[in-house]
Design a protein around this nucleic acid. Structure first.
Lengths: 229, 229
DNA sequence: TCTATCATGTAACCAGTTACATGATTTT
DNA sequence: AAAATCATGTAACTGGTTACATGATAGA
C-alpha cells in the first residue's frame, strides 16, 4: 500500500533536496530552482510555492533555522531540513526511482472510450497524436544536441529518457493506426458489441428488479460493495 | 490556456460516457463500471463517486431526469447527460487521444535528484525498478494471453499498449544501468559538480549581501510558525 | 518623483478524499 | 427478531491553485 505522503507536490521534493545542502530562505530556494531550470524536470506552479513550504513545515519536514533582515526589506525566514525531512527525502527519491508508475492513465482512459467514436474519428485523433509526438521528438532531439554542444550535462539524462519513451509510444500508435487503416476493426466492433451487451444486460436486469429479485440473491449474482477499500 | 476542466476526475469521464447511452441512477452507473472492469483502465476511488456526480450536475454536464422509487427503498435519482455534457465528453476524449502527456513526470523528478545519491545507491534503486518492470511485463503478457484465450477483446488494446511502453522503459533503464556499471560516471559527476557550482555561486552572492546584513532578528532561533494554528 | 516591477507572502476557494450517517435488506 | 451487511448519501477536512496584498527597489 502506498504510504500517503503528507506533502505530495513535487515542488516539495525540490525544496527538500535544495535545502538538504544548506539552510535557505524561500526566495533563495525559488531562485536556485529557477536558475537550475528545475521546471524542465517537473511542472512547477510557483503560486503554490509558499503553501508547499508551509506544509513542509507543518509536517515537520523542515523547520525555521533563522530570521534574517537586511536593509529595510521584510524579514526573511531561513529554513533548514529536519531529520524527518531527510528521511522523507530519501524515501521519496527511493520510491520515484525504484517504483515504476502506472502507465499513462489518461491515454488509457481515452483508449477505453474508443467504442463511443467512429473508426474515422479515432483514426483522425490518433493521427493528431502521432503528429504531436513527432513534434515532441524533434524538439527533444534538438534539445539533446544543444545540451551536448553547450556541454550542459544536467538535463541530458531526462532528455534521453523522454526521447526513448516517446519514440516507443509513437511506434505503437503508428502500428495501431496501420491496423485500423488495414480494416482490422474486429477488435473495435467487438468492443462496441460488448458495450451494447452490457447495456442490454442492465436493461433486462433493471426490468427484473422488484418482481424477481429474490431469485438472483445468491452470492453469485449479488452486487458487490462499491467501496472495496 | 489549457481549458481547465470543471470536473477533471477521470471518474467523471466514465460517468459521462456511461450515461451518454441512456439515463441511469448512480448505483446503476457504478455497477456498470464495475462490471466492465473500468478500474483496469483508470484508478477509481469509489468514495469520490457521489461527489463527482454532484459536481457534474453542478456544472451542468448532467441533469436530473427522473426520480424513481421501488419497494420501500430510498428514492433513486436518475441522471441524464446534457448537451453541454456531450460536448465536454467529446472534447475530453479528443484531448485524451490526440494530445500526448508529458512523460512520466515523477520518474523524471527522481532522475533529477540523482546528484544527491551515490552511484551505488542509484544503481541499486534502478535495479529495483528493473525488477518491478520485469514483473509488470510478465503480468501484462499473461493478461494478454488470457484475454486472447477467453476472447475478452475489451482490454487487449490497453494491455498491448502497456506492454509496449513498459518494454521500452525497461530497455532504457537497463541501458542506463549498463552505462553506470561500465563506469560512465562522467555525466553524474558533472551533474553533481553543477549542483556544487550553483551552490557556491549562491553562497558568494549571499556572502556579498552578508556584508550588509549584520543585524539579525532578536527572535533568533525562535520557532515562528508562518501561520498560526 | 512617479511608476513599474519584484520579493514575499496571505487568503479564499475548490476539487477530491475520507469518515461518518441512515435506512433497507439479508442472514442467522 | 437480532445482527450483519449493503446501498446510498452527507459533511467535514485538506492539499493545491489562483487571486490578491504589501512593502521595497529600480527606472523613467
Amino acid at each position: 500500500m502506498a504510504k500517503r505522503r503528507k506533502v505530495s507536490n513535487m515542488l516539495g521534493l525540490a525544496v527538500l533536496s535544495t535545502i538538504s545542502l544548506e539552510p535557505m530562505h524561500p526566495y533563495q530556494i525559488a531562485s536556485l530552482l529557477r536558475e537550475r531550470g528545475k521546471g524542465r524536470d517537473m511542472e512547477i506552479k510557483w503560486g503554490s510555492f509558499y503553501t508547499v513550504v508551509q506544509n513542509l513545515q507543518k509536517h515537520g519536514l523542515i523547520a525555521v533555522a533563522d530570521n534574517v533582515r537586511q536593509g529595510g526589506r521584510p524579514e526573511r525566514t531561513v529554513y533548514r531540513i529536519t531529520d524527518a525531512g531527510r528521511e522523507e527525502l530519501a524515501d521519496w527519491v527511493r520510491e520515484l526511482l525504484a517504483a515504476p508508475e502506472r502507465e499513462r492513465p489518461r491515454f488509457k482512459a481515452g483508449l477505453s472510450t474508443l467504442g463511443l467514436l467512429s473508426p474515422d474519428q479515432v483514426m483522425d485523433l490518433l493521427r493528431q497524436r502521432v503528429s504531436a509526438l513527432e513534434q515532441m521528438i524533434a524538439h527533444d532531439r534538438a534539445e539533446l544536441v544543444r545540451y551536448r554542444q553547450e556541454i550542459v550535462e544536467i538535463f541530458i539524462i531526462e532528455a534521453e529518457y523522454d526521447l526513448a519513451i516517446r519514440e516507443a509510444e509513437l511506434a505503437w500508435v503508428q502500428a495501431l493506426l496501420a491496423r485500423l487503416a488495414d480494416g482490422d476493426f474486429g477488435r473495435l466492433e467487438a468492443w462496441r458489441g460488448f458495450h451494447e451487451t452490457g447495456r442490454s444486460r442492465w436493461s433486462r436486469r433493471a426490468a427484473d428488479e422488484g418482481s424477481r429479485r429474490r431469485h438472483r440473491s445468491s452470492k453469485h449474482r449479488r452486487d458487490r460493495p462499491l467501496r472495496s477499500g
